[in-house]
């Protein structure tokens, strides 16, 4: 059974200028200890989906359909009360910009203690000892001294480690990492990603990695889900999606990534922009208006196309393996 299962989730934002259908019929699964990369350009709904999983979406957001199940429990039941007990303990998240996400006027050790105090019975000296242990787990050198540091005294990479320490303090079963390395240098990025991966392996923790860097997702995730304008258009084992993308958007996204390309001319650009999700006349396929394979049937509900084992695309005109 999967640890996390999002089933046919739809979410909309009510704004003054209309209803934004930010997620529509989104489904994904993540097994215990697995890693899933959620990729797509900005505005495709990656972060909205992860916030919805944690129940921290904006007040203007409304989940209109679907379920989110975590270890068999329905997270949306009881108006999210089930969620509150789990968030921070079983599910944890690390955010994009560590300097902004950390409290600037509290010592980083205290910020770890805050989480531990909320979810465990540890108090006093044992609490402090555990907080220092958490800093050591994320390979922060000299954790006793760093306990008393404020975020501004630490480098970006160190702040990100502190945030990971906070997220992992209660040994969650699921870690959601939203662009955890954006703004960090490549060398730091590699260190942070390896840390997340190793800790995931050590503790059997599942990871949902949200990123627009396909190279990163390719290296660190077993499975990939490609999002476009609030839809998941393709999902499958990472290498399969990279080698034989069936959905035209997934195909263009992989070709637009400079990783592994040897000539600038081979880089593909994806024409057009994300459609305005406030429109009421959106075709069933939200990529249709940017797509080279558009046909009349793109307006009717999308079929599910099985590309291979566990590899699915939602498209009327997928790249079929036998044709390729």
């Amino acid at each position: 059974m999967s640890l996390l299962a999002v089933e046919n989730l739809s979410l909309e934002f009510r704004t003054r200028s209309g209803i934004v259908r930010a997620l529509e019929n989104v489904s994904l699964e993540l097994p215990e200890g697995g890693s899933l990369g959620l990729v797509g350009e900005s505005g495709s709904g990656k972060s909205v989906l992860s916030f919805a999983i944690l129940g921290i979406q904006d007040a203007a957001a409304r989940i209109t359909a679907g379920r989110i199940r975590f270890a068999g429990q329905d997270l949306l039941a009881n108006e999210g009360r089930a969620m509150k007990a789990l968030r921070g303990r079983e599910l944890a998240m690390i955010f994009q910009n560590p300097r902004v996400a950390l409290n600037p006027i509290r010592q980083v050790g205290q910020q770890i203690e805050d989480v531990l105090r909320r979810h465990t019975d540890l108090r006093g000296k044992t609490l402090r000892a555990r907080a220092i242990e958490c800093l050591a787990e994320v390979r922060i050198p000299d954790p006793e001294r760093r306990y008393a540091a404020y975020p501004f005294e630490l480098s970006g990479g160190m702040c990100q480690r502190v945030m990971i320490a906070i997220a992992l303090a209660c040994r969650p079963r699921l870690l959601i990492a939203d662009e955890p390395t954006t703004g960090l240098d490549v060398t730091t990025q590699a260190a942070i990603m390896r840390l997340i991966r190793d800790l995931g392996h050590e503790k059997g923790m599942a990871t949902l990695l949200i990123t627009h860097d396909l190279g990163l997702a390719r290296e660190f995730c077993d499975k990939l889900a490609v999002m476009h304008a609030g839809h998941i258009v393709e999902t499958g084992p990472t290498e399969a999606v990279f080698r034989t993308p069936a959905h035209p958007y997934a195909a263009q996204l992989t070709r637009a990534t400079p990783v592994g390309q040897d000539r600038l001319e081979n880089l593909a650009a994806i024409p057009g922009n994300l459609p305005d999700l406030r429109r009421t006349d959106l075709p069933a396929c939200r990529f249709a208006e940017r797509c080279e394979r558009r046909a009349d049937d793109c307006a009717i509900p999308l079929p599910r196309y099985e590309v291979g084992a566990g590899h699915t695309a939602f498209c009327h005109h997928p790249t079929r393996l036998e044709a390729a």
Binding site: P141, A191, F220
Partner: peptide, 26 residues
């Protein structure tokens, strides 16, 4: 070498390995 070894997905033609990764963080 460390920068190139750190690139996710590697580079075409690159021959860096894990041993090239920098050890200290900062």
């Amino acid at each position: 070498r460390a920068m190139i070894a750190s690139l996710p997905g590697g580079l075409t033609g690159g021959q860096a390995s894990d041993a090239d990764l920098l050890i200290g963080g900062d």
